[in-house]
């Protein structure tokens, strides 16, 4: 739950719900981007995702380093990814 997982913004979803599609190691899911405030995001940007919300913008190098670190976590990371894959935010 505390793991921040890097994801790449694929598409901003229209409407008042502040959702965007992100790609997290091949899994595409909707997440909420409303906590990023003014700075906003565009497709191609990387964000750290916590429990379905983008919490901060990061650069691609940081995203790659974080992913490598998470992969090394083993079970905790797999659990979090599975939970994310099952998530169905609308």
């Amino acid at each position: 739950m505390c793991l921040g997982i890097p994801g790449e913004i694929v598409e901003l979803l229209p409407g008042p719900t502040e959702l965007a599609t992100v790609d997290v190691v091949g899994v595409r899911r909707a997440i909420n981007i409303g906590l990023l405030g003014e700075q906003g995001v565009r497709p191609g940007d990387w964000v750290l995702v916590h429990v379905g919300f983008a919490m901060s913008k990061i650069d691609e190098a940081e995203a790659a380093a974080t992913l490598a670190l998470l992969t090394g976590l083993g079970q905790a990371y797999t659990d979090e990814l599975e939970a994310l894959a099952e998530s169905d935010i609308t």
């Binding site: 429990v51 379905g52 099952e86 998530s87 169905d88 935010i89």
Partner: peptide, 10 residues
Amino acid sequence: MVYSPLDALK
């Protein structure tokens, strides 16, 4: 079990 509070909302 949910991944996000938004899943609970759903």
